[in-house]
Amino acid sequence: MTLDLHGYGWMLWRGLGLTILVGLGAMGLAVTFGLIGAWGKLSRYRVARWLADTYTTVIRGVPELILILLVYYGVPTLIQDLAASAGRDLRVDLNPFVAGIATIGLIYGAFATEVFRGAFQAVPRGQIEAARAFGMGRVLMLRRVVLPQMWRFALPGLGNVWMVLIKATALISVIQLEELMRSADIAARATRLPFTFFFAASLFYLGITIASMLIQRRIESWSYRGAPRGQS
């Protein structure tokens, strides 16, 4: 038996495209926030450590759905209220696509922070000392010795972040962005075939995650060239 999508197939495919786009954008942002967060956590400066700790504690401690609603509905209202109290009339509208990427990126950046923090600490101390002993400055050492090895240790954790992140994009259907989940929902309501469309959507998500795992495996085996076997 084939899955009859009653002419709504194109909508799911378009939703899939949008989901992947939001996912990639959010992942890029999450990696950026994660690197900054890890730098903060390992910083010599107390303020940076405190900011990074607050970031991961708050973000990881609040449900994603609430954060999404808070950013999309809450932030514009807050800005408008603040403007009004200053006697200004301001109307702020967030683009759901941008808001979605920003929120998901912000949330998973907190998880990526922990991944990177662990990865930085996994780079053998002796190799960092060797870099110093050969006269490398901080930036050169970071770029040539620490970061290349840090990625190796971060990859498994980042793969995990990506898997959870791509599934979490389904949550942004609540802010009217017609990504995969929302498209399936619309089609299901219009045709009154919820099982068909949610089942189809779940296959799409599964497709993304399986493809991701295969890609991750290739990247990992490439990055592990030269790594000691068994341990790292």
Binding site: G126, E129, A130, A133, F134, G135, R152, A227
Partner: peptide, 19 residues
């Protein structure tokens, strides 16, 4: 950093860059 380039260091545990 400049002085270190003039002092070669060999470590007990080699500390070669593994990547």
């Amino acid at each position: 950093d400049r002085i270190r380039t003039r002092l070669g260091m060999v470590f007990q545990r080699f500390n070669l860059w593994s990547h």
